[in-house]
Design a protein around this nucleic acid. Sequence first.
DNA 1: CTTGAAAGCTCTGTAAG
DNA 2: CTTACAGAGCTTTCAAG
Lengths: 181, 181
Amino acid sequence: MPNPEKTEAVQNKCQEARPLDAFDRKILGELAVDAGLSYAELGSRAGLSAPAVHERVKRLRATGRIRGTVAVLDGPTTGKPFLAFVHVDSTGWGKTQELLALSELPEVEEIHSVAGDTCMLLKVRCASSRALEGLLARLYALPSVKATRSYVVLSTFLERTPQAEITEALESTDLSSLASR
Amino acid sequence: MPNPEKTEAVQNKCQEARPLDAFDRKILGELAVDAGLSYAELGSRAGLSAPAVHERVKRLRATGRIRGTVAVLDGPTTGKPFLAFVHVDSTGWGKTQELLALSELPEVEEIHSVAGDTCMLLKVRCASSRALEGLLARLYALPSVKATRSYVVLSTFLERTPQAEITEALESTDLSSLASR
DNA sequence: CTTGAAAGCTCTGTAAG
DNA sequence: CTTACAGAGCTTTCAAG
């Protein structure tokens, strides 16, 4: 039986007012690299006990900081060696339902609206150039799509999931190098 | 003791000649969405027993199809709400060690060399526009970097890990629609 | 491949400091 | 927050079909 303790049971899922402390950031950083770690191992790395870590991880999941855990597949050997970024120019306000419908295609991994000389940016991973051609055909079938520019990936040197380390890094460090120019 | 049956025992780790069967693809697809599934649950979804699934998953890990399992963090609430794609034009053959050194920055999530009107493509997630400015300053400090174009993400409609479903999809389907134009 | 069973480990919660 | 002690559940391996 779940026990209603303190403020925990009351808190909502979408609460953003709770800042992460150093322990939370350390835990998130470790889990972002390897979600298979035991709470004991996680605790020793973060400097906490296993129950404490467990409590924090549960909270991080409940508040949405951890969206889930997924397996990282090797693209080339799983039948989709072809990676490309597609810029989409559309007439009017491009973020229509039409483009969002592309989410249903497993080839489409990312859809962003961006600022710059294009409206939308797609990341596509598929089996071959023919599959990309098929996707482009589908894009041009949409009335609002004016033009596309495709950037076919020749080789990938780095591709990792969001935030390997939760730090402030570049913030101050590199701006000093900027000032010294 | 592992029994040497047929061609199986001979295979190397980097062998690409082993096609995934329907069971493997189903398992990979499920794990790509949720790596926290138990082998029992995984088995019932794929139509296999738990030990059989366990054996396959172990093999998929050993052969590199599954690179690892990671936690998916929520970017905005973990202190890095700022996402951008940076195109880098460089003189000469751009894929030098210099650019690869950027891998060490936690803000840089992806580095690709691409075909198109630019040489390299970076995916950067950081705390603010100032952090991006710092990264650009660092880029221009490299002798081979000629120019950059940044596409700042306004909003993200889809962002998922490689291959939610391991199928052939678009291959034949959409090419027929191409032919009918 | 299957079922079944046994051993080991982790999780999960409770309790007390 | 910590350590400690249980019980439940899952993983992992082995056997036999």
